[in-house]
Amino acid sequence: MTRVCLLGSPEVNLQYELLSRETSRDALATYDLERPFENALALRTVSVGAAVSLLNDLQWYLVRFVDEAIVQEPSVSETEWLSRGLAEELRNGETRPDETGEFLKVYGLETADAAVSAGTDTSAETETEATATRGTTGGGETESETRADTETAADAAAYTADRLVEPLYVRRTDGEIPEYDLRDVDDTLVVRLTEGEFSP
């Protein structure tokens, strides 16, 4: 199964923005949604082609609410992700899987446990989620739809997610990835890029 993850823009609540709008909610309705990182949504599709098609269907919302859309294809890597552009090149046959590992964007990953122990306050985001959902949807939503949104926000408020922090652009050399050195982090998340997306 191919995994898709949408990383929300810092100034928006991604879960609320996507699930409070009828078109995007309908596009996502057939998928089991996960929240692997703070202000992110993930789901599984049957193939890279299906992942790219879904992202194309959500384009209007991606432009407005999503910082980055990434795709994980097990036949390419079990642990590393692909940028949307690279996933499209693979789908179109413009790039082979063994040609995708050189240009990388490495995010630092702060685990939820570490954030709590360090005293990071996550209550502001969760309160914003609950408050935003309690407000009017402005789109003629039915009472049941509004209640579903409220329940979604309540679930999010009870969940503290790992957090991705500023990315480092690096090139893999002799099979090795340079160490992430922008700050102390618990782990990293590697995204493979097209050469055109690489900007060290």
Rank of each mutant, 00 (worst) to 15 (best):
E80Y: 05
R147D: 14
S144A: 15
T95C: 07
D162H: 08
T128P: 00
T173A: 08
T142D: 14
T150M: 04
A87Y: 05
D149E: 13
V106N: 04
A153M: 03
A69R: 04
A154C: 01
P97D: 11
R171V: 05
V165T: 14
S77L: 06
T111F: 10
R183C: 08
D186E: 08
G85V: 00
E80H: 09
E88I: 08
D184N: 08
G139C: 06
S123L: 09
V165E: 01
D149P: 01
A114S: 13
T160H: 08
Y169Q: 11
D184Q: 13
D186P: 00
K105E: 06
A115K: 01
Q72W: 03
Q72Y: 01
G108Y: 07
I70T: 04
A112H: 09
L90W: 12
A130M: 09
G93I: 10
E125G: 08
E78S: 12
D174R: 08
A118K: 03
D184S: 12
S77A: 06
L86H: 09
T122E: 06
T100F: 13
T95Q: 03
T131N: 00
D186F: 02
R91W: 13
T131C: 00
T150A: 04
G135W: 00
Y180I: 13
R171E: 05
N92W: 11
A124E: 07
V185M: 07
E73Q: 13
T79L: 05
E129H: 03
T95D: 00
T137W: 02
P74K: 13
Y159L: 12
F103S: 14
P97Q: 09
L86R: 14
L164A: 02
G85Q: 09
E151S: 01
E80M: 10
A158K: 05
T136M: 04
P178W: 02
G140W: 15
E129T: 10
G93Y: 09
E145I: 04
T146M: 10
D155F: 08
D149H: 12
A156H: 03
